[in-house]
Simulated assay, not measured.
Amino acid sequence: MTGTTISTMGATLPTRPSLFRRACGRAAALLAGIAAGLSRQALNVRVLRQLGAMSERELKDIGLARQDVWDAAALPHDGDATTLLLARRAERKAARRG
């Protein structure tokens, strides 16, 4: 957020946003980051639960193995399980082609 300007004896001086506004902006950014992390974690839990309920055949149909699901579940809470699963699937697909 840019500040307004003050005109003093013909000179124009920029003003800085108030400390309160900057603090509010930083707090909002922090809360948005926390909310994004929580929603990503909830998505990972839901995906892993659904994949865990699938049979070996169903996992093979979508290009995954049971070990991939276990590896994704072993990631730390801030890790992104879906990214790992998509990478494993892409590796297998590339290996079949090439």
Rank of each mutant, 00 (worst) to 15 (best):
M1L: 09
M1A: 05
T2N: 04
T2A: 10
T2L: 12
G3F: 04
S7H: 06
S7Q: 07
S7F: 03
M9F: 13
T12C: 04
L13Q: 10
P14I: 03
P17E: 12
R21I: 15
A23E: 13
A23P: 03
C24E: 14
C24M: 13
C24D: 11
G25Q: 15
A29V: 09
L31M: 07
A32G: 12
I34H: 07
G37L: 13
L38T: 08
R40S: 02
R40V: 00
R40T: 14
Q41A: 12
Q41M: 15
A42V: 08
L43A: 06
L43V: 09
N44Q: 07
V47L: 04
L51S: 03
L51Y: 04
L51V: 12
G52Q: 05
G52P: 04
G52F: 10
A53R: 10
A53K: 15
M54I: 09
R57P: 04
L59R: 00
K60F: 11
D61A: 06
A65S: 08
A65V: 07
R66Y: 09
R66H: 14
Q67Y: 02
Q67A: 15
Q67R: 12
L75K: 05
A81P: 01
A81N: 02
T82R: 12
T82I: 15
T83G: 13
L84H: 01
L84A: 02
L85S: 07
L85D: 02
L85W: 01
L86S: 13
R88H: 15
A90Q: 12
A94G: 09
A95C: 05
R96H: 06
G98Y: 08
G98D: 12
